[in-house]
Each structure stands twice: as structure tokens, then as C-alpha cells.
Amino acid sequence: MSVVSQQRPQAGAASSRKPAPTAGLRGLGHPAILALVPALTLFCAFWLLPFARLVLMGAEVDRGSGVSAYLAILTHRQYLTSLAATLGISLVVSLAAVGIAGLAGFFLARHRFAGKSLLVASLTFPLAFPGVVVGFLVIMLGGRQGALAQLSLWLFDERWMFAYSLMGLFVGYLYFSIPRVITTVMAACDTLDRSLEEAARSLGASTWRVARDVIVPGIAPALLSTGAICFATSMGAFGTAFTLGTRMSILPLDIYGEFTNYANFSMAAALSVVLGVITWIALSVARKLAGGGLGAPA
């Protein structure tokens, strides 16, 4: 009897256990699966199939070199220079945007003053501008008839211009990258636990030590994500570069030139794949670092 009485609770406990939820699509009901159908259809029709076609087209023979377009990118100085210039300016723009707008976003999140809403609206206004308009604004600032040229002509009897170079492209990219960082950093600063800062100050930490050990790690995921977005946007931005001049050697303009001017579809496809893969890797690495507990409390 004692053995039976001891086994009954165990059997009851075992029977009361709930089955583990099934993973994957098997655990979803039919309505949930049907809800995924439109998204999967659009994904396959407008991204997966065209990108697969680009990959195959890029493996074809390049009209200019007679070898595979992917191999031509790695062996021709023109394309390597374009790739290096695109990577360099995108990286510099990302770092500059995170540094400048990160400080501005933190200041705006922590201080209240008259006209703050108007200032935030003005700083984020470039988000409403397409790339062509941004390029035109850079020309109005640093072009031949721009404000800087007129001022230098009046002061030094010579025109100073930067619009039609990588410097002008940097200014244009930075102009529409700063708003993306400011809004994200402001939202991240609002979620910081200020008690950690107060505790650090009570222990004798200086302002710079608090910023380095508490504030920056706390908003690091936001900085990484916005930096990656700025990098990806700068890598593929076309309107601003096209407005400032088609002679600059960067990947978006090279893709446009190979496709429209020379009908070199294999090279245009290969350059598009390279640009897309680099951007995807940057976003994936940033997402992994930002989601890996970076800046989270222990």
C-alpha cells in the first residue's frame, strides 16, 4: 500500500504537466500561417527572385574585360578604387554622424528649454528631403555660385568650392544622417536609469568617467544601430551623388553608368551584389552586437 500511495502522486504530477510548445511553423495556427503568405509572396517576388537573378547575371562575362564580372571587380583598379572610396566615405560619415548627433541627442534628451521642440523639428527636417534636394542644397552652399564661393570671391578674389567632390558628398550624406542618429539617441537616453549615474557620482566618479562607464555603454546599442543605418544609407545613396556630379568614383554612380551608358549588365549586376552584401554584413554585425546585451545591466 505504501508503494502504491507513493506512486499515485507521482503519476498525478506527471499527468498534470503541460506538453511543451512546438517550435517553428507547426506551433502556429492556420490564420497565423495565412497572415505570413502576403509578406512571403512580396519577399520572394520583389527581393529574392530579382536578387538571385542579379547574382547569376554578375557571374557572366564582363563586356569590358572578357572575364567574370566578379573577377573584374577584384582585378581592375577602377572598381577597387570606387569600392574603397564608397566604403571610406560611408564609414567616415557614420562615425561623424554618431559623434556629432550623439552629443546633440543626449543634450536635447536631458535638458528642457524654450524652443526645444522647434529646434528638434528643425534638426530632423532633412528626413523629409530626397537625395536630389540635399544635393541641390550642397550646391547652393559649396557650388560655383554658392554662398562659400561668393564669400571667398569677395574676400580673396577667388572661388572656393567643394560641392563637386567627395567633400561635398560627405557634407550631403552627413546632412541626412544626423537626424536619424538624433531621434534614436534621444529615445535611448530617455530609457537610461539615472540612479546608476547618481551612484557613480556619489562614489566620486568624474563627469567624463560617468559618461564613459555609464552613459555610453547604456546607449551603445542605439549608437551601433544608427551607425549601421547611416553606413548602409551612405553606401547606397544615389540621388545626392548624381546631383553633385556623375564623374565621382563611387559604387552607386558606377552601377548607373555601367547599366545606362555602356549596357554592361553583368558588371552592373556584380557591383549591385557587392554593394548589397557589404551593406547586409554591416547591418547584421551591428544587429548582433546591439542585441548581445551591449549596455544592458548585469
Results as ranks from 00 to 15, higher is better:
Ser2Ala: 11
Ser2Glu: 08
Val3Trp: 06
Val4Arg: 14
Gln6Ala: 13
Gln7Thr: 13
Gln10Thr: 06
Arg17Lys: 10
Pro21Leu: 07
Thr22His: 09
Gly24Ala: 10
Arg26Gln: 10
Gly27Lys: 08
His30Gln: 10
His30Asp: 12
Val37Ala: 15
Pro38Ser: 05
Leu40Thr: 10
Phe43Ala: 14
Ala45Asp: 05
Phe46Tyr: 12
Phe46Trp: 07
Leu49Met: 11
Phe51Met: 10
Leu54Ile: 11
Arg63Phe: 11
Gly64His: 13
Gly64Trp: 04
Val67Arg: 11
Ile73Gly: 10
Thr81Leu: 12
Ser82His: 06
Leu87Val: 15
Gly88Met: 06
Gly88Ala: 13
Ile89Pro: 04
Ala101Asp: 01
Gly102Ile: 00
Gly102Asn: 01
Phe107Ala: 15
Ala109Glu: 00
Ala109Lys: 00
Arg110Thr: 15
Arg112Gly: 11
Gly115Glu: 05
Ser117Arg: 14
Val120Pro: 00
Val120Ala: 01
Thr124Tyr: 02
Phe125Cys: 12
Ala128Trp: 05
Gly135Val: 08
Gly135Leu: 05
Leu148Ala: 14
Leu148Arg: 07
Ala149Cys: 13
Phe156Ile: 12
Asp157Phe: 02
Asp157Gln: 08
Arg159Asp: 12
Phe162Met: 10
Tyr164Met: 07
Ser165Ala: 10
Gly168Lys: 03
Gly168His: 03
Leu174Trp: 01
Phe176Val: 14
Pro179Ala: 03
Ile182Leu: 09
Thr183Ala: 14
Ala187Cys: 05
Ala188Pro: 05
Asp193His: 02
Leu196Gln: 15
Leu196Gly: 03
Val210Gly: 00
Ala211Phe: 13
Ala211Ser: 06
Asp213Lys: 00
Val214Asp: 01
Gly218Leu: 01
Ile219Met: 00
Ile219His: 00
Ala220Phe: 02
Ala222Thr: 02
Ala222Ser: 09
Leu224Asn: 08
Thr226Phe: 02
Ala228Asn: 04
Ile229Asn: 11
Ala232Leu: 02
Thr233Pro: 01
Ala237Leu: 07
Ala241Lys: 05
Leu244Asn: 05
Gly245Ile: 06
Gly245Asp: 11
Pro252Gly: 09
Ile255Asp: 06
Ala263Thr: 14
Asn264Trp: 03
Phe265Ile: 13
Ala269Lys: 07
Ala270Pro: 04
Val273Met: 09
Val273Tyr: 04
Val273Leu: 08
Val274Gln: 04
Val277Gly: 10
Trp280Glu: 13
Leu283Cys: 14
Leu289Val: 05
Gly291Trp: 06
Gly291Cys: 07
Gly292Ile: 07
Gly293Asn: 12
Gly295Thr: 03
Gly295Pro: 04
